[in-house]
Design a protein around this nucleic acid. Sequence first.
DNA 1: TATTTATACATAACATGTTCATGATTTTCC
DNA 2: GGAAAATCATGAACATGTTATGTATAAATA
Lengths: 185, 185
Amino acid sequence: MDTPAGNGKMKVRLRSFSNSLPMSLLKARESVMQRFRSSLRLFNITEQQWRVLRALSSVESIEVTVLAKATFLLAPSLSRILKDLEERHLVIKTPVAKDLRRSLVSVTPDGLKLIDAVAPHSERIYSEITQAFGEEKMKLLQDLLKELETDINKLPAIVHDAADRQMPEFSQTTAGLPRGRPRKS
Amino acid sequence: MDTPAGNGKMKVRLRSFSNSLPMSLLKARESVMQRFRSSLRLFNITEQQWRVLRALSSVESIEVTVLAKATFLLAPSLSRILKDLEERHLVIKTPVAKDLRRSLVSVTPDGLKLIDAVAPHSERIYSEITQAFGEEKMKLLQDLLKELETDINKLPAIVHDAADRQMPEFSQTTAGLPRGRPRKS
DNA sequence: TATTTATACATAACATGTTCATGATTTTCC
DNA sequence: GGAAAATCATGAACATGTTATGTATAAATA
């Protein structure tokens, strides 16, 4: 029965939880990252810091905003990471004369040394995973992931109408606070 | 030339960064989650809180450790989340008389109401994504992700040097085994 | 039974994700 | 030229990821 008698609304049955796409993606990524994390830990760098160093290794210098897109990090996170890496003398920031709001980031010789030390571990782990999974399947997976991303980004933006916002049936204690920094108002 | 003259060591060339498997998985998951986040934000619940509520919605009660595995959350995160959800009267924790270390978690009527309010949004978004991507490709992707996870978990544990000690393996065969220290039998 | 060891859960501490807000510029527009 | 708006980078505040540690309890063992 799809429609309970005498009631227009019905409870939506949630799909099996552990088989959901977000969970599958999360678990797959975690499987992969666990192989890398133990190596990165040897060098006292986090996954995100390694992303930054890797991105820097292929360019002479790069603007912070461009670096954020390349590493898929949000600006505040990247700001903190760069501050930390600069204190460790792994990167250096240079202001841009043409636009004093911007700054260029470069890797230092110390940073390059670290990259060269980590890279063999990283590549070895990547090769192991590729070999275990199979190169063709790896390419197929990558293509599918890219298609998924493309297809989703083609979807129209979600608009919440007044009906969606209609949820006053939750008490204040139940409602909770919005995410992130609380609004000043 | 693969080998620089007069030097046994060589720099390992890092693969293209934005095409790496971890980055592909991360970007794909972010594309998916962005569709969900705006809805969850309407109800002031985070993705992780929603994972917990969803897991609770299918059981009468569940132990914290089992819930952690089901939601793929680490114990400290889950501990904080449950504390928050309990303060919002969405879940309730009950100590287990037989073993005072453990506690059972259940969703409250308020929590159920919230779940029933969120579920239609969640399912609608999931359907949109499935339709845009295609059901067959979705299944293929899920199968590949599962295979990847399985293959990686079959790989031998990483051993770096004699220096770094292998952390004690967390017990994964908890499904039907007794809690606490394993019985000798 | 007393001691030791393992487990369940919580807490601490720090890095990052996420959102909002601010300061310093640069750009746009009047 | 000057006010308003947009942009870049950072900071604030809270939730979560991650590792280490602590506390209470149960199980194993001497």
